[in-house]
Design a protein around this nucleic acid. Sequence first.
DNA 1: ATCAACCATATTGTCAACAATCTCGTTGAC
DNA 2: GTCAACGAGATTGTTGACAATATGGTTGAT
Lengths: 229, 229
Amino acid sequence: MADGQVTGQEGRRVVGAGIRARLSAGEMAPGQRLVEQELSETFGTTRSAVREALQDLAAEGLVELIPRRGARVRVISVEEAVQITECRAALESLCARRAAASAGDADRAELRAIGEQMSRAVADGDLDAYSALNRRLHDTVARASGQEVATSLLDRLNGQTVRFQFRLALRPGRPAQSLPQHLAIIEAVVTGDGAAAEAAARAHVDSVVAELAATPQRTGAVDSEAAVP
Amino acid sequence: MADGQVTGQEGRRVVGAGIRARLSAGEMAPGQRLVEQELSETFGTTRSAVREALQDLAAEGLVELIPRRGARVRVISVEEAVQITECRAALESLCARRAAASAGDADRAELRAIGEQMSRAVADGDLDAYSALNRRLHDTVARASGQEVATSLLDRLNGQTVRFQFRLALRPGRPAQSLPQHLAIIEAVVTGDGAAAEAAARAHVDSVVAELAATPQRTGAVDSEAAVP
DNA sequence: ATCAACCATATTGTCAACAATCTCGTTGAC
DNA sequence: GTCAACGAGATTGTTGACAATATGGTTGAT
């Protein structure tokens, strides 16, 4: 890849996107140090660009920035993941209610399609497809609601918990549990029943909270101080 | 003021706090340009510090940062303020419910005190005091809930709407309308009735939404393009 | 063997000069 | 009079060198 030198303003985006991607892919463990020069060489940008990208990521809560000590991938405890998910429940139920009232025909058609594909994915045992559809469902409801502020908050919150979401979807029996909940949300939004949509969304995310609460603490963080020999 | 030169790391905080304060005080109008060199002279810091502070403010949604064109105070439309307030309703009702369940004795005592002072402020027609107590009430409920994630989201959202809140509190009859709502929230949290607290918080913030929706569009922005001669 | 002081190195923070770009008033043609 | 091209000044973006600080290992005393 004759990448060459990535110029400043773009470097910021490149580094940000790159770290985000590795974060989601689990290639960067929570607690891992992020050294500016190292990153600048990896992505072929200047240190300034890396610096700015790290600021962005810190503002999003993905990275922890300690003065004079550099950046680390932020460690999100199960406890915090639960709180994040509780906020998601509050905001997604708002979106679901509004989506039921104001979704366009295209949105409703897409929701129906997602529902069918989800059922098929579960029947086929295709977890990856189901997981992708899951994200797409939540996104579609959020966008269809017209609640741009809530949507952007949800994006931020989801970014922080991708790691946990990933682990949850792999639990045996979890898809069988969540599929009917997803279908209930879709049904309510498509038929325009706001109250039912709100309730269904809340019930669904609350069940994620319950699932999270039953999660063991250690999640593969790079331990810096809490190592038990 | 023998201020001297404020050094980098602190300059960032100083500039951030300074702009925030002027923003809240209405000394900086929405749409106003924020020129880096100008700010650096005002606050006695370097341009770098100003730059970083502006990034922070942009991440918080208080400032709009257009590449190659500089920073402006972000214009928040009434429509957006409504959406922000709807999110607040969702998150504050979550906090109220949890606060009812998990507030400590100190929190409950403080809430009672706030209620009494609020009643007195309204009776005295002291709008400033009432406004300050209003903020303190919402803060106290959020903190007492133990929902740190929701609390930090609410902080951010409130920062964006201070201007609107300010205007609302000045409407004749508004305090008389909101006081019983505030007292209902306090009563429910203090007595530990989670469902009532959630309902009361939602009702209150929803009434703010209604009030906002009845707001004329122009809010004193520095018009750059939409000026009507 | 243990511990504290110390030093070399790695890493982040700061700054000022330079480059690139935009803004806006001026000029000139039609 | 209107409009487009131009250019000077203002403003933001970028860079590289330097300063300040933290880190981790080494040394030497006890």
